[in-house]
């Protein structure tokens, strides 16, 4: 089979484009550290969150110098705690679960966005560099109050942080 020279050009370019797409994603995953939401957390009983160490009292806990863990419970139609208070310049791992139906946990306008499934613990880590406030909303239809289900993440300046308790 004879292939015209021009055809060879665009075949090669198309291949290169695919290679470039894959390499940028690989670059994001390695050099930039972009990660996927993992599902390696153990499942829990959504009806017994009150007896769960992490979720009986939804809170933000300091676990290292600049490392925090946020235990968040989504329910019809709110997030606990609200607001989720963290200091600027911290790395926060969120553990989010639901006590009733499937919810979403989306930090509005950012890439932090997970499904919240009863019995599952959605886990992800993000860095908060600057003080500010983010909205959080549910993006999975969860009932007649879905549209009012919201929360917030308040990033306070490091020196003003008091542990995140209300």
């Amino acid at each position: 089979m004879h292939i015209h020279n021009y055809e060879k050009i665009w075949l090669v370019l198309a291949m290169l484009l695919i290679v470039a797409f894959i390499s940028t994603v690989a670059y994001g995953a390695t050099a930039m550290g972009v990660d996927m939401i993992s599902d390696d957390e153990e499942t829990i009983n959504p009806d017994a969150l009150d007896e769960d160490q992490r979720f009986a009292e939804p809170r933000v806990e300091q676990v290292g110098e600049n490392e925090y863990e946020a235990y968040v419970v989504a329910l019809q139609f709110a997030f606990q705690p609200d607001p989720i208070e963290v200091p600027a310049g911290s790395t926060v791992t969120f553990y989010v679960t639901s006590r009733d139906v499937i919810h979403g946990f989306e930090v509005v306008g950012t890439n932090a966005n997970v499904m919240v499934v009863p019995g599952e613990v959605s886990t992800f880590t993000v860095e908060f560099n600057e003080a500010g406030e983010y909205g959080v909303l549910c993006n999975e239809y969860c009932g007649d109050g879905h549209h009012v289900m919201e929360g917030s993440v308040v990033v306070v300046p490091e020196e003003e942080y008091d542990g995140g308790d209300q």
Binding site: T24, V34, T93
Partner: peptide, 29 residues
């Protein structure tokens, strides 16, 4: 085709590096 190619490449760079990576908070773990 070269024009399409250039447009695609620019759009990809914009979408991945500016819209996606620039859209903090990014999940890192």
């Amino acid at each position: 085709i070269l024009l399409y190619f250039v447009i695609l490449a620019i759009l990809w760079i914009f979408m991945y590096f500016i819209e996606f990576l620039g859209n903090d908070l990014t999940v890192i773990g």
